[in-house]
Simulated assay, not measured.
Amino acid sequence: MTLVDFYHLVSSPLERILPVICEKVLTGGDRLLVVAEPGLLGRLDEQLWNFSRDAFLPHGRQNGENQPILLSETPEAVNGATNIAIADGQWRDEALSFARAFYFFDAGDVDRARSLWRRLKDIPEVESRYWKQDDRGKWVQGP
């Protein structure tokens, strides 16, 4: 069974949301693979180093078997991750081999996300949830 969480980025950018997800995954004792195109990976790498003065998110890029959070262009969990974050809005079917997938998309990717949602609803081994921020910035689960 794969749980796919759709995160519709409305009022906060990915660079502010992803570190929070990373913290939650690590707190649960799990590992995370973050997949995106190279330019975005560079920005996320920097953000994970600088997001908080009080916290450290251990992470690395490419071939980091020992990294609790691995940033990569490909959906291969060489770090043993059971969680994957698709950070660039480009779904990769390999995500379905993970226990949990976080799929981030913004206003420009809504149609693609809807299409993916419909496709995943037909797969019995997949449970999908939709999350969107309310007016106060709190994440609420949608229908």
Rank of each mutant, 00 (worst) to 15 (best):
Gln90Ala: 14
Thr2Phe: 08
Gln141Glu: 15
Leu96Ile: 03
Trp91Asp: 07
Leu44Asn: 06
Leu44Phe: 08
Thr2Asp: 08
Arg31Pro: 00
Gln47Ser: 14
Gly89Tyr: 05
Asp134Lys: 09
Val25Leu: 06
Asp93Ile: 05
Asp109Asn: 15
Arg129Val: 12
Gln62Arg: 11
Asn50Ala: 11
Ile17Ser: 01
Ala36Ile: 09
Gly64Phe: 02
Ala113Tyr: 12
Pro38Leu: 07
Arg53Tyr: 03
Asn83Gly: 00
Asp5Met: 07
Ala95Leu: 07
Glu76His: 11
Ile69Glu: 00
Gln47Glu: 12
Trp117Asp: 14
Glu127Pro: 00
Ser11Asn: 13
Tyr103Arg: 03
Leu70Lys: 02
His8Asp: 13
Val4Asp: 11
Ser52Lys: 05
Leu9Pro: 03
Gly108Cys: 13
Glu76Val: 12
Gly137Ile: 07
Val20Phe: 03
Val34Met: 06
Trp139Arg: 07
Met1Ala: 14
Asn83Tyr: 05
Val126Asp: 01
Pro13Cys: 04
Val35Leu: 07
Glu127His: 11
Arg43Gly: 02
Asn79Ile: 01
Phe51Asp: 03
His59Gln: 05
Val4Arg: 09
Ser128Ile: 15
Gly108His: 12
Gly89Ala: 11
Gly108Tyr: 13
Glu65Gln: 06
Trp139Ile: 07
Arg119Ala: 15
Ser11Ile: 04
Val4Thr: 10
Gly29Ile: 10
Leu41Val: 08
Arg112Lys: 15
Glu94Gly: 04
Arg31Thr: 04
Glu23Lys: 06
Lys121Pro: 00
Glu127Thr: 15
Val78Thr: 09
Gly64Asn: 04
Arg118Thr: 09
Phe6Arg: 00
Gly28Ala: 15
Ile86Asp: 01
Val25Asn: 05
Phe104Val: 06
Ala99Gln: 14
Pro75Cys: 09
Val140His: 13
Ala85Cys: 06
His8Trp: 15
Ala55Gln: 10
